[in-house]
């Protein structure tokens, strides 16, 4: 019945795991840098803030609001011409990283902005009272104070990326999710699917644990 024994399966699982990890880490790192920068720009260009700029804020805000609700599977297809320009191809693991980075960066931008806005205005005022100029307040008070909750937000995105990589199979991104879909869905091999699901659960747990650990480290809340 099974057209695959364990020995033949293992290399496929390892390869899938490696692809998933590659897609998740690369897109996450790129998205974290890009998203946090975008979040800071959003925050700084808000009304009343240091770089107040209605055009920049308005455009960024609109782009985020438009892209965020698009289902990932549709976004992959929709931006595939752009992917081809940037990555050189619209097929394969590298090609999947581009849309993954875009969605993650956009979510991170919003999360970063929210956390920056939520920084206690009292600490900002204390900074001003000590003679810190607005840029200094942004760099040495607002951003560091928002880091703790931001790490929790980033962890959420990291886990969501594992989820999104399964869809990346559509453009030949490979990975664990793709493996499960191919064997479980198309060939009704529940053993492969179960193995992959267990691996995914473990992976998500490890990432969540890591995120919590880092958050606790930067939050210093007891």
């Amino acid at each position: 019945m099974r057209d695959l024994d364990l020995e033949a399966l293992l290399p496929k699982i390892w390869a899938g795991l490696a692809q998933t990890l590659q897609m998740v880490t690369v897109s996450f790192l790129l998205a974290a840098v890009l998203g946090v920068l975008l979040g800071i720009v959003l925050y700084a260009t808000r009304k009343g803030n240091i770089l107040e700029n209605r055009v920049v804020f308005g455009v960024l805000n609109a782009v985020i609001n438009v892209v965020r609700p698009i289902p990932f599977i549709i976004l992959i297809v929709a931006i595939s011409p752009l992917t081809r320009v940037v990555v050189g191809t619209s097929i394969g693991t590298e090609a999947a990283i581009f849309p993954l980075t875009i969605v993650a960066a956009i979510s991170i931008a919003r999360i970063a902005e929210t956390n920056l806005v939520a920084v206690d205005p009292g600490t900002i005022e204390a900074g001003a009272a000590m003679g810190a100029r607005p840029l200094r307040v942004l760099l040495t008070i607002v951003i560091p104070e928002s880091l703790g909750p931001l790490v929790l937000g980033l962890t959420y995105i990291l886990v969501a990326l594992v989820d999104a990589t399964a869809v990346a199979g559509v453009v030949g991104g490979g990975g664990l999710g793709n493996l499960a879909l191919t064997y479980g869905w198309q060939r009704f091999d529940f053993f492969v699917m179960a193995t992959v699901i267990v691996l995914l659960i473990v992976l998500v747990q490890v990432l969540q644990l890591l995120g919590n650990l880092v958050a606790r480290k930067v939050m210093h809340a007891r």
Binding site: G122, T123, E125, A126, P144, E145, A221
Partner: peptide, 15 residues
């Protein structure tokens, strides 16, 4: 910098 200030909610930097 020549004028210190203290607050009801302390306003210390948590980080």
């Amino acid at each position: 910098q020549r004028i210190g200030m203290i607050f009801q909610q302390f306003n210390l930097l948590q980080s």
